[in-house]
Design a protein around this nucleic acid. Sequence first.
DNA 1: GCCGTTTTCGGCCCGACTGTTTTCAGTCG
Length: 579
Amino acid sequence: MARTNDDVAAMLEEYADLLAITGGPDFKIRVYQKAARSIGAHVTDIAGYDTTELRQIPNVGESIARKVAGYLRSGTVPQLEELRGRIPAGVRALTRIPALGPKRAMALHQRLGVDSPESLEAAIHAGALHGLPGFGEKTEENLLHGIALLRDAGERVHLGVAMPLAEDIVTALRAVEGCHRCGYAGSLRRMKDTIGDIDIVATSNRPKVLMSAFVALSQVTEVILHGDTKTSVRTGQGLQVDLRVVPPDAWGAAMQYFTGAKAHNIRTREIAVHRKLKLSEYGLFDAVTDELIVSKTEEEVYQRLGLPWIPPTLREDIGEIEAALAGELPDLVTEEDVRGDLHTHTELTDGHASLEEMVAAAAERGYAYYGVTDHGPKLYMQQMTLDKALAQRERVRELDGTSGLRLLHGVELNIDPDGDVDWPPDVLAGFDVCVASVHSHFDLPQDRTTRRLVRAAEHPCVNIIGHPSARLIGRRPPIDADWDEVFQACARSGTALEINAFPDRLDLAAELIRRARRYGVKFAVDSDSHAVGHLANLRYGIGTAQRGWLTADDVINTWPLDRLTAFLRKKQAAGVSRP
DNA sequence: GCCGTTTTCGGCCCGACTGTTTTCAGTCG
């Protein structure tokens, strides 16, 4: 079930879209978009807020507060209903066609009665657009292409798809003659869990050479636009890749410009304007004389705006500007802080490598400790038994300490629909670490799912709730729980929440991490590796932890071993009663 | 419609590319 805030944000976005289609003033459209973002990013649920409370939220003033309060009460907003009455829903859908915006969507609707992508396609084939001002032959062609693209929707891809592709392209471009620097920016650098397109920034004094090399890459199947400083292509899997080339001295300004979410960039450019400056991808300039002030590094750009450097993973305009101004940016956890992995598998259950191979790979990564957590017996297809687990424990103890790596023998338990787990407490007490996860029954009603997770968290032997929402990005929605209640149970019982680093999970998601953190919950960033190559996925989990504003102190597997083991044992020692 | 170390009124981010234009509007990121 969508949270109230997301529901209200969607309502305000629709209002902004309909304003744009009806030709409303730009500043008004922007304000509704800004209010939608602020409410979407607001950490507490606004259900039950009155207008006074609503107005405390940035970009929510008298008028929007009144609309939202009315919406919370009655589920409707008269002004929105009025616009909906004038603009069929399909006209808003038209603006999702690439290269067709609100202005021309409205023109098509008014002049031809077009009210959906399907009716636009029919109108083009019928020749109805001939003679319509602003719609030439080439435009018709582009619109048909856009409709086709929309139809077999190039879905957003997860980090595990986008990152390797971006790294390949960056590597190829760095080898091109005249390329000074090259890197990826955009949502990929912000480590967003899904990526709509890839932004690449390069510096060179000979941009044309780079552009030619770019469009000639083997991954490229279509050139969308091809200019001297900006070129966009589409890859075989339908992903758009943009390359921007700027002069070598503009590297910092360009990376700043192309990394931030749009909202973050608007904020930084507004700050520039207030200081009589102008910020673009070429640098920070004096607004009056147009004289260049800084451009070489991101640090310089932020510094001249009166801000500390803001880590890419925070650049969403969800409070990082305010935190930066107040000197309260979190000291984010990094991959270097991580001392071990606490959720991994071997071929004893569904892993693809032996215990020895996994341990060697973990040692290679320089970990201080490493948890082996094969599945418990309740996941029947894995055929786990207590004897097998105990035999594995003996082997783990033999390997412990070799290559300087302390091994923890653990288990990934299955949380059943009632919140119970595989083995009785006396068996579980023998494990060094217990992860417990949901693997089935994903669509229970909210109250049952909440109780299920709360009971698992309160179990005296469960240390970590694995992939807590059980989502699979693009394939399975998160389970529906009252997360605030779950987070409180975790904080109360000393149970950590996992940030599962598998790129199609990234679970918990950043928004829920930010909410959980407010209750004082601790986290474990784990790879859930089923093969040696998966250990490196941890970086995606760290990116997600950063997007959740976590510091190393929030993440138990950055702690020294003695602090970690104290945390893992504390529950049982405290004798938390079995629910 | 919102906001304020420039302001309670008067502002509101910036630049590239395309297509249809003869200098610019629309769209995008």
